[in-house]
Design a protein around this nucleic acid. Structure first.
Lengths: 227, 227
DNA sequence: TAGATTGTTAATCGATTAACAATC
DNA sequence: TAGATTGTTAATCGATTAACAATC
């Protein structure tokens, strides 16, 4: 990660590890609610995010973000704009949520999605008693639709290419395959099972955010410590 | 990661990255439901987990797991035992869940926790209408208790040192601080905000598993691709 | 000015990949 | 036997840390 990259060839090279840290910086700005004209130093960002100030400056350098002022830091307005651009959260992404159980609705109701310019267009489920309900988020109402309507819905809404998968474990892989068949390009899987993309899939992104997976890390650390 | 470590000094050195992969291997075995006497090769594990067979063998080597047979692979029974031991999932960890909203209850109801030897002892909330309910998981009933009873509960149940944090964003940091004050040693935070341990905290582990964080990765990839 | 903080380079560190002899 | 798969070493790769001149 030595070479500085120009704005034009940013596109393919940024690793997801960098993206994750960039999202930390962005979240930090959201959380701190500073005035647009305030300045924040890499050291202050370290305090909030836990990422070292050296790492932060290295990331900015790598991404071609050189808007800092010595002795002051980074202007919140400018930094915010740069981070948003890298993360592409300025594009108002629309997503669907598959599964309107507890988890699916918990996800949909996160007010924070709005701050992050992410909109839930609809939820889908196969349980008749759920269908027809609406999930309400400030300024955004998402209906719960019959899973059978999914195909039609996606044909009518070609701008939706992201799905959040919150179905029971046993149904998850089949549903993933179906979503890909319908042209979905990005999936976050919340079922507690690692899913895999079908073999010859191209240009589809999958992140397994399996609930409970991080619990292993904690259990490991707790029980190792006392041995 | 060149030096092989002996079983005795495993304790402090395994990085969380290795632990994460080990949990993948373990999950793969759970998923495949093979006979105890079957053998599985590193190549087959690659197919299921997406981790390269070289990486897998390197991990096993590093952890001192050398139970493979040439031309066959690893006996499921033995491998399972080794992986469980590394992950410490053979100890029947008890956890509490803070927040009995949609997310908290969704977490508690994961049947999978049982397979992984993790038991939810109780949930806590401050909403009166929730208190008194019970969350039922196969063979395990967890009551929803008043958050005010948390202190007493932990004094009476000193073996509980892990908490899953599923409270609203604004309450998360305060609750984390409180949990640490009460002697909790491991916390998984599910609120959509990065929490930090109080400065001089020792021997406490925190994993931020912020819901929605992985969405950034997907949004980034989707929108970069089309530029 | 003196001190703080940036942008940038170089050094270090750690993780992954590749290769292959051993052998079942 | 021949082929497949392990355990292990060495090479490569990438990410993080440290250091510091520049300068506001």
């Amino acid at each position: 990660m030595e070479k500085k990259i120009s704005k034009s060839d940013k596109i393919k090279k940024i690793s997801l590890r960098v993206i994750r840290r960039i999202s930390f910086y962005y979240e930090a700005l959201l959380k701190l609610q500073l005035d647009e004209n305030d300045y924040i130093s890499s050291k202050s960002l370290e305090d909030v995010t836990g990422v070292s100030c050296n790492q932060i400056r290295q990331d900015f350098f790598y991404l071609g973000i050189s808007i800092g002022k010595q002795k002051k830091g980074y202007q919140v307005k400018k930094l915010n704009k740069e981070l948003k651009q890298v993360l592409s959260v300025d594009q108002g992404a629309k997503v669907i949520v598959i599964g309107a159980g507890r988890l699916g609705r918990a996800l949909s109701e996160y007010k924070l999605f709005k701050v992050r310019n992410i909109f839930v267009a609809a939820l889908f489920d196969n349980k008749e008693d759920l269908i027809g309900e609406c999930v309400e988020v400030k300024g955004n109402t998402a209906p719960i639709l019959d899973i059978d309507e999914l195909d039609d819905f996606l044909i009518k809404n070609k701008d939706i290419r992201i799905a959040l998968l919150a179905v029971p474990e046993v149904a998850a892989q089949d549903m993933l395959d179906r979503l890909i068949g319908l042209g979905i390009k990005g999936i976050v899987n919340f079922a507690p099972r690692i899913l895999k993309l079908p073999k010859d899939t191209k240009d589809v992104y999958l992140v397994n955010d399996c609930i409970g997976a991080s619990l292993y890390k904690i259990v490991y650390q707790i029980y190792q410590q006392e041995q």
